[in-house]
Simulated assay, not measured.
Amino acid sequence: MRTTIGYTVESIGYVVGAQGLVSFASQAFFGTEWGWMHKVVDLPSTAYLGIAAVGLALIVGGVKTRKTPQRQKAA
């Protein structure tokens, strides 16, 4: 079960982090809107770096959840 949860959290982290980076880069360097984050929230470009950090935290949390050894139940 931990493995499934770890992969799920990690996958969500990749999507959120990528969208945060794409939204930041598009606003900061090109002055346009890329991705789908701008359709959900309207934030300044630096706030999208925070969203990318949340994505990174989800990735790290998912990997740690996936790699923790499971305790065996005593019979």
Results as ranks from 00 to 15, higher is better:
A28H: 13
Y7Q: 02
M1T: 12
F29M: 15
A28I: 09
M1I: 08
I12P: 00
V16C: 00
G6H: 05
I12E: 00
W36V: 15
Q27W: 01
S23K: 06
E10Q: 07
G6K: 03
A18C: 05
S11V: 04
G20Y: 01
R2Y: 05
T3F: 06
F30D: 12
H38F: 12
M1W: 02
E33P: 12
I12K: 00
F24Q: 04
S23A: 15
I12T: 09
E33H: 13
Q19C: 13
E10T: 06
G35R: 07
F29T: 15
M1L: 07
A28K: 13
I5H: 00
F24L: 12
Q19I: 04
G35H: 11
A25R: 00
V15L: 15
S11H: 04
S23E: 13
Y14S: 10
F29C: 14
A28Y: 11
A25V: 12
A28N: 14
G6R: 00
F24M: 12
M1H: 06
T32H: 10
T4E: 03
L21T: 07
V9K: 00
G20D: 02
T3H: 05
S23G: 12
F30S: 15
A18E: 02
Q19L: 13
V16T: 09
G13N: 03
E10L: 06
E33W: 06
W34D: 03
S23M: 05
H38T: 14
G35V: 12
W34V: 07
R2A: 06
V16I: 14
G13F: 01
T3P: 03
Q27Y: 06
V9G: 00
G17Q: 05
A25Q: 05
A18F: 12
I5S: 09
S11M: 11
R2T: 10
A28T: 11
V15M: 05
